[in-house]
């Protein structure tokens, strides 16, 4: 398997706080790659740096061999990295369908003139956006809510909607920040199935942050463990499980 994403020596500090220090990772195409670690370990910071919301203080991020660090968020999304947020960030006053249609922005072109003249090309593009968005809602299993306001959806459906919005940009890497947070065990299982299914169907590489270690062990091909902004290890779940520093830093708290 060839490498899709590489972090080399990525650091980020906020004032005196070192949120990420010298993190290096390598993620291969098609992998389900987990990122675990205690609260405040720097997982979400890593996502924010990856998706351009925060520039790294130092280090390099290569996506498909091209540097992406320091690019603005929308450029990074164009390259093929899409994400969801830990504390769901939808467009609450817009319908589910519109949320997904917005996710299609980076792959479409109609500008001011197109919008005003509504020529054939714009009309075709709009129809394609709409069709694609509807199809994605179907995929994540919330097609029946297409016309509901995103803010009125149930928690689990909002998570799914966020994934659909991310998928709308035809990503190659999908980064999910605690997608199972607040779900019950049954919902978690169905989410895990959905993630696998999406990976296969869309040929995605998936990077997941999740607190539920059992879910991660079952779901991921490989995983990295962060603690205090440092990578402790990066390995297959079975070896991560028994890694002494991991047990001490993270699993030692009674979960193991």
């Amino acid at each position: 398997m060839s490498e899709l994403l590489r972090f080399s020596g990525v650091s980020r500090h906020f004032g005196g706080v070192q949120a990420l220090s010298e993190v290096s990772l390598s993620i291969s195409r098609g992998e389900l790659y987990g990122l675990i670690g205690p609260n405040g370990a720097g997982k979400t910071t890593l996502f924010n740096v990856l998706t351009g919301l925060i520039p790294p203080s130092s280090g390099e991020i290569l996506f498909d061999g091209q540097p992406v660090h320091g690019l603005p968020p929308h450029r990074i999304l164009e390259r093929g990295i899409a994400r969801t947020f830990q504390n769901i960030r939808l467009f609450p006053g817009l319908t589910a369908l519109e949320n997904v249609m917005i996710g299609r922005h980076a792959r479409t072109h109609a500008g001011l003139l197109g919008a005003i003249l509504r020529n054939r090309r714009t009309r075709n593009e709009e129809a394609a956006i709409r069709a694609r968005a509807a199809q994605l809602l179907e995929h994540v299993g919330i097609a029946r809510h297409a016309q509901a306001l995103a803010g009125n959806l149930s928690y689990g459906d909002q998570r799914r909607l966020e994934i659909a919005r991310a998928l709308a940009s035809d990503p190659r890497l999908l980064a999910l920040d605690e997608p199972a947070a607040g779900m019950n065990p049954a919902e978690r299982d169905s989410l895990a199935r959905l993630i696998r299914q999406l990976r296969d169907e869309f040929q995605l590489t998936v990077l997941i942050i999740e607190h539920d270690v059992r879910l991660m062990m079952a779901l991921c091909d490989r995983m990295a463990v962060l603690d205090f902004g440092e990578k402790i290890t990066e390995d297959v779940p079975d070896r991560v499980r028994v890694h002494p520093r991991v047990i001490r830093a993270y699993l030692g708290g009674g979960e193991a």
Partner: peptide, 18 residues
């Protein structure tokens, strides 16, 4: 739609490619 996205949540809009 891009305007609406910014109105609703600027950060999410940026992360959605706007």
């Amino acid at each position: 739609r891009a305007w609406a996205a910014i109105r609703e949540d600027e950060l999410a809009a940026a992360a959605s490619g706007i």
